[in-house]
Computed example of a mutant assay.
Amino acid sequence: MKGKVIFIGAGPGDPDLVTVKGRNVIEKADVIVYAGSLVNKEVLNPRKEDCVVYNSAVLNLEETTEICREATSKGQLVARVHTGDPSIYGAIGEQIRELQKYDIEYDIIPGVSSLFGTASVLETELTLPEISQTVIITRPEGRTPKPRSESISSLSKHQATMCIFLGIGMIDKVVDELLVGYSEDTPIAVVKKATWDDQEIIRGTLKNIAQKVKDANITKTAMIVVGDVLNPGDFTPSKLYDPNFKHEYR
């Protein structure tokens, strides 16, 4: 019997935010490869006693692929557990490409992105009528290159809601690029470890957020959200629940 690799989005941190489907696979898995400190280890608690667990933080792509190849050749089920939703900065594309080389069967189970965990703890709707109807998901350029047209400075000119992954370690650079399109009074929030027990939330404006982040000594595992949806004041409600508007999606 051929084995299988199943990529699972573990959610943003709260172990109850993993999907039922994802948890069912974790319960049945013979092997689990999880994404290090980014994944709350409580997510792995339902596993079998004899399940073999690997921390991918100390593995390279070749080593991870070999674990999957060996396990599936024995007919075993491998749960590849990623933080949030694996389709956003989860590096599953390169892993899938390697699995395909060995004709290893795989599936993907989506998860609650840290982006949405962040929005929930900020108690914010990211798309408010007449304020922003667009959400830009991006990251600053670091060791991973970006197309020039996708620079934060270019994207900032849309003045839409922007959610920035993997940027807290270069907060000064991120703010400088954001100021190309947004005003310095634009509200911004930084959330470290959203939905974890030890989450931290910092609110400010583009004028003062960098210093606030430094004062809090936040250097990793944080999401940056910028845009007027964070402090909208009065705004026009949507038509969804307008008494004079009939809507099939209500």
Rank of each mutant, 00 (worst) to 15 (best):
Glu200Leu: 14
Asn208Lys: 06
Arg97Tyr: 14
Ala79Met: 09
Asp234Met: 11
Leu240Val: 11
Ser113Gln: 07
Asn231Arg: 06
Ile201Glu: 05
Val43Trp: 04
Leu44Ala: 11
Gly93Tyr: 06
Ala79Pro: 06
Glu150Val: 04
Lys192His: 15
Ala119His: 02
Gly9Asp: 04
Asn55Cys: 10
Glu130Arg: 13
Asp215His: 05
Glu105Phe: 09
His158Tyr: 12
Leu126His: 06
Gly167Ala: 06
Ile171Glu: 00
Leu126Gln: 08
Glu62Gln: 14
Glu184Val: 10
His247Tyr: 09
Ala160Pro: 04
Asp172Asn: 08
Asn231Gln: 13
Val226Leu: 03
Arg80Gly: 05
Gly167Leu: 09
Thr72Leu: 06
Thr195Trp: 01
Asp197Gln: 15
Lys173Thr: 12
Asp85Gly: 08
Glu42Arg: 13
Gly117Tyr: 04
Asp14Phe: 05
Glu98Ala: 15
Glu94Asp: 13
Thr72Cys: 14
Ile104Lys: 04
Pro187Gly: 03
Pro46Val: 01
Arg139Thr: 10
Asp107Gln: 11
Glu98Gly: 08
Glu105Tyr: 08
Glu70His: 11
Val5Arg: 06
Gly3Met: 07
Ala216His: 07
Lys246Glu: 14
Thr124His: 00
Ile201Tyr: 06
Thr161Ala: 05
Val112Glu: 03
Ile6Gln: 02
Arg143Trp: 06
Ser151Met: 02
Glu49Ser: 13
Ala194Gly: 09
Asn231Phe: 05
Tyr89Phe: 14
Asn231Met: 05
Val20Asn: 10
Met170Cys: 15
